[in-house]
Nucleic acid binder design. Structure first.
Lengths: 104, 104
DNA sequence: ATATTATTTCGACTAAACTAGAAATATAGG
DNA sequence: CCTATATTTCTAGTTTAGTCGAAATAATAT
């Protein structure tokens, strides 16, 4: 994953509503949850939620599958894993060998 | 680290300039780098950079130490570690046990 | 066909982020 | 004291994000 995609994904998770949605979907598991279920659980107005879900899908944090009338949202675990891997590789160098301090 | 602080930190890292700054500081190591050094390396106008650095410091991603005329910026590795830990705990459940494997 | 349910798109607004030049501040050296 | 350097604050403009009611779309059932 490249710099810009990582930044875009972090920006999406950097919104409180969207982070809540992602956490909810992770709890829901691989089956995900429908837009309506998310809406009821988190109490976000439908049009607002739809907007946030579209953004999350756009960067690949979630996938949306249409099953008749309902749209099921599924968290893309691997996408988040890739973001975390990038952060570990690019932003955590040197954390193990700490020359200045021990712990805090 | 709580939900809101995680979201705020992710939002800061979710900006391309700020992610570049953080990566640069990590490469610089525990000694960090001065504002001027960052400015030269990344080519961001001084006032713009100052603004981004202040935001990063506010959420605890970096620390700023004044040494005579220059201000040294140091990455707070542990802060990012805490953010990553939150993501792993709250947003990666179920990734190890495959959906095809035993449910629990 | 009509009604019901699930979700999105539209439209309009407010708030916040991003940008960067110019002026101000702070510190050090001559 | 004056000058150079490092960085911030001020100011102002542009852009993007966030919000949500109302209307539109899509699918299903009656």
């Amino acid at each position: 994953m490249d710099h810009e995609r990582v930044a875009a994904s972090l920006a999406e998770l950097g919104n409180s509503h969207r982070l809540s949605v992602f956490r909810f979907l992770v709890k829901a598991g691989y089956g995900g949850a429908s837009v309506g279920e998310i809406q009821k659980a988190l109490g976000i107005p439908a049009s607002t939620l739809s907007h946030h879900l579209a953004r999350m899908a756009k960067v690949g944090l979630i996938r949306q599958e249409k099953h008749s009338r309902t749209i099921v949202c599924i968290p893309e675990y691997q996408h988040l894993e890739n973001v975390i891997d990038f952060l570990r590789e690019e932003c955590c160098e040197g954390i193990a060998p700490n020359p200045t301090a021990k712990a805090q």
